[in-house]
Amino acid sequence: MTGWSTHEGIAIAFDRESVDTDQLIPARFMSTPRSEGYGDFLLHDMRYDGEGRPRPEFPLNRHPEVSVLVTRRNFGSGSSREAAVYALVDFGIRAVIAPSFGDIFASNAVNNGLLPARVDADTVDALIGALGEGEMDALIDLATSTLKIGESTLPFDLDPVWREKLIEGWDDIDLTLKYRNEIASFRRTIEEEAHWRLPAGAG
């Protein structure tokens, strides 16, 4: 994953609450290899009608260039499927602004360079009101944790660890392998002092 520190793009409102990961990507698409791209699956059953035709009034269909979604509380709740993040990222979304996120979703997002930015419910309400059905230029600065949408600039909440990770584009596996020795000695302690923790008959 490559890091980023600023993003200039287009914001729209997605005026829904509790958009769960089953809606972000319905389960039936999840057997697809990632290399084929997940963008078409994003919010599939809202974006397309029963015949597979795009619903013209749906926000993503009206604004296919969008990269910043402003939405309501509890975004990404539910299933841990990282495919929900793949669908957003492959569609071109770089940041989601909401009052709250599902915990697992938020951590999956950061692992894929997608910003889950928390902004309080009243501010989100005002932003959604200002955006209406239109779009506005958006500018995100991770270093200062600020967001500019149209004329208003506002701070957002982001765990400092996650901010670092988004900026540096860290790969956790590389980082963790630096602790190889500590891990091995922890493993040995379990074997010697808490053998019951290992599955019986498996070592």
């Binding site: 841990s80 499927r81 993040v85 697992i104 951590s107 999956n108 692992n111 956790d172 596996i173 963790t176």
Partner: peptide
């Protein structure tokens, strides 16, 4: 606790 695919790989 449940984890996403990047974490499963980790």
């Amino acid at each position: 606790f449940g984890i996403g695919a990047t974490e499963v790989a980790h």
